[in-house]
């Protein structure tokens, strides 16, 4: 997941971020890749997402998941992780 920058000498840790329902509509996409400076938390990822066009429509503290399991905003992320921002759940 680490992305090459410049002449390929440097790599930046990165996480894949998934969006659903009205979050995906607000951002105009259902996923993106966010560079992170480790150590980093899901909260840092959310901050980066909210800086994207449309991202201000997302709450500062949404429900989140890390690698397909519910996770708190202070959970640590690592290179290659999958973070999901979850609108209020409405299953059933």
């Amino acid at each position: 997941m680490a992305r090459h920058h410049g002449l390929g000498q440097l790599t930046m840790p990165a996480v894949r971020v998934l969006f659903f329902a009205h979050y995906a509509e607000a951002l105009g996409r259902d996923e993106t890749v966010v560079d992170v400076n480790l150590p980093a938390t899901i909260r840092d990822v959310v901050r980066s997402v909210r800086a994207l066009p449309g991202g201000q429509q997302l709450p500062e503290s949404p429900l989140t998941a890390l690698n397909a399991a519910h996770a708190r905003l202070d959970a640590r992320v690592n290179d290659g992780d999958e973070v999901a921002l979850l609108p209020p759940l409405a299953g059933g």
């Binding site: 659903f20 329902a21 009205h22 998941a65 519910h70 999901a84 979850l86 609108p87 209020p88 759940l89 409405a90 299953g91 059933g92």
Partner: peptide, 21 residues
């Protein structure tokens, strides 16, 4: 409480509404 599922209601007047949104 836990399942990541979302609903968009399609209403008789033609509007569409995310549930809880």
């Amino acid at each position: 409480k836990r399942l990541p599922v979302w609903k968009k209601e399609l209403r008789r007047d033609g509007s569409a509404v995310w549930v809880d949104h």
